[in-house]
Write a protein that binds this DNA or RNA. Structure first.
Length: 514
RNA sequence: GGCCCUGUCGUCUAGCUUGGUCUAGGACGUCAGAUUCUCAAUCUGGUGACACGGGUUCAAAUCCCGUCAGGGCCA
């Protein structure tokens, strides 16, 4: 047996660029990454793009950008499409050593055979019909340009294939039941199991940490390794990430791509922390982990065997937690792209067409005084103004994109809401009108320089207290200013809006009640 | 259909290796209360699980067997 192993830990993640980077794949990437870093090993990113029709450059870009955004850094990067010669070399080797053979069976033949096998209650697998083809027969078929596949010849010895899974223990398979599987279509289109086995060896992968859905691929890969004289990596099969119905997480369960979560405004630390706990836990009651502490605490022994349901409620909770941890400045910087995207404001110094990934947004904040224009009113506002707005809503945010709908009233020239919303409990139009009128008078008397939260609170709470039920005064005030049934408190909002706008909005509310 | 994996609150899980400290712990959710003009945040409390059936044992969530259920892969 060729021994390619040094003691160095080398792991890989092997996504196909046939779709956006999936949560499940990313969780596997995370575990591989922290495992590698824990043991000073290497983490390899291998793009499995042998399926040239379905592989897309844009998806490869998405994989790279998403991992990068999460802070999962690879040490080596490979693309299978650039390694075709290697696979072909090994295919030829197997052919030459009679460990694989040409198969010219047609789809129809195969299908008929399968149906028959199922009908007699047999495992459906290839019969080995083309095993016995002579050299001449093969050459003749090749000359006729008949399409062919290369099949792996299951060795006759019927010994069980056994491997020791680091998470699940011994797993056994009967090679008889596998059948001569296809390793390549023609000579130049290697199939998944073959390319993976070859690459894992060539790349000196020490541990294959992957999803449970690959358990049944493992015996095939082991067979290939044995036929080629490769050493065997250690295997660890992770539990699957599940949807609410307990089946493998997929599109029909909703958002499954990391980029979708980025766009919605989840933080990388949230996703890291959350994904780590999908199938792993430290065995203590601590639940907040960043990538560094994960590397420190991680252990394959603490990995769960059963699948884990992806619970968005919990993700939201965690994201809210991390959002609340952010400094005023930081959270404002993070929210601004979403305000821009919602078409509420636009940056004055520098264009920023498209929020989150936009490099201009980042550079924006490096300028001394970034300024913005409110789209509806053309007013110019500065970073500090936005900071006040965002800060007011920071503790209410579950994900960043919510900022737009929560704070849009700060940027609207005209509020639109049902006039009945202004009524607290059983107030009638007249009572609301009088209340607004009273508010108008009090606020007009307040000097602009005293138009701040503390002062307003002092004055208005005193007034609100007189009525007994403070809602009678405060609710109409808040609705007049925001147009919403739920919002932050009226005093802080009033301060940000400023005297002039507050009076204008109260006046507009009065109009509604006339 | 065949093979394989799994099974503790609705969800993520601790406990299972080395049976007793488990009247099964934590977190999210949910419900109630406090706070409060609303929402959120925060605090307090409640709710809620060892899939089932047999063993083994003085004693089983923990060990053994079976059943059932769910999932994955292949085609």
């Amino acid at each position: 047996m060729i021994n390619s192993q040094s003691n160095k830990i080398r792991v890989r993640i092997a996504p196909s660029p046939t779709g956006l980077l999936h949560i499940g794949t990313t969780r596997t990437a995370l575990f591989n990454y922290i495992f590698a870093k824990k043991f000073q090993g290497n983490f390899i990113l291998r793009i499995e793009d042998t399926d040239l029709e379905r592989s897309k450059k844009e998806y490869e870009k998405d994989i790279v950008e998403s991992l990068d955004w999460l802070g999962i850094k690879w040490d080596e990067y490979y693309k299978q499409s650039e390694r075709m010669d290697i696979y072909e070399k090994y295919i030829k080797k197997l052919l030459k050593e009679d460990k694989a053979y040409y198969c010219f069976c047609t789809e129809e033949e195969l299908e008929a055979q399968k149906q028959y096998q199922i009908s007699i209650g047999q495992a459906a697998h290839y019969s080995g019909k083309c095993r016995g083809l002579s050299k001449d027969e093969i050459n003749e078929n090749l000359k006729e340009k008949k399409p062919f596949v290369i099949r792996f010849k299951i060795p006759d010895s019927s010994k069980k294939i056994v491997f020791d899974d680091l998470i699940r223990g011994k797993i056994e398979f009967d090679p008889e039941l596998i059948g001569d599987f296809i390793i390549s279509k023609g000579l130049k289109k290697p199939f998944y199991n073959f390319a993976a086995a070859v690459d894992d060896f060539e790349m000196k992968i020490s541990h294959v940490i992957r999803g449970e859905d690959h358990i049944s691929n493992t015996p095939k890969q082991i067979l290939i390794q044995e036929a080629l004289g490769f050493s065997q990596p250690k295997y660890a099969h992770l539990p699957l990430v599940l949807g609410p119905d307990k089946s493998k997480l997929s599109k029909r369960h909703g958002a499954t791509a990391i980029s979708e979560y980025i766009e919605k405004g989840y933080l990388p630390e949230t996703l890291i922390n959350f994904m780590a706990f999908l199938g792993w836990n430290p065995g203590t009651e601590r639940e907040i982990y960043n990538i560094v502490s994960l590397i420190k605490e991680f252990s394959l022994e603490n990995i769960q065997k059963g699948g884990a349901v992806f619970n968005v409620k919990r993700l939201d909770y965690l994201n809210g937690f991390y959002i609340r941890q952010k400094s005023d400045k930081k959270i404002t910087e993070l929210c601004i792209p979403y305000l821009i995207k919602a078409d509420l404001i636009e940056p004055l110094n520098g264009d920023c067409p498209d929020g989150v990934h936009c490099p201009e947004t980042v550079s924006l904040f490096e300028e001394e005084k970034p300024e913005f224009k409110i789209k509806e009113s053309n007013e110019i506002i500065d970073f500090d103004y936005l900071k006040k707005v965002v800060k007011t809503y920071q503790e209410r945010l579950r994900y960043l994109s919510e900022i737009a709908e929560l704070t849009d009233f700060f940027f609207k020239a005209q509020l639109e809401y049902d006039k009945d919303l202004l009524k607290w409990k059983d107030m009638d139009d007249k009572q609301v009108f009088d209340t607004l009128d009273k508010l108008e008078k009090i606020l007009s008397k307040t000097e602009s320089k005293d138009f701040n939260k503390e002062n307003l609170e002092k004055v208005l709470m005193l007034e609100a207290g007189k009525a007994g039920d403070r809602g009678k005064l405060l609710w109409p005030l808040r609705v007049a200013l925001t147009g919403k049934k739920a919002s932050a408190g009226p005093f802080e909002i009033a301060e940000i809006l400023g005297k002039e706008k507050c009076l204008k909005r109260i006046g507009e509310a009065k109009e509604l009640m006339k």
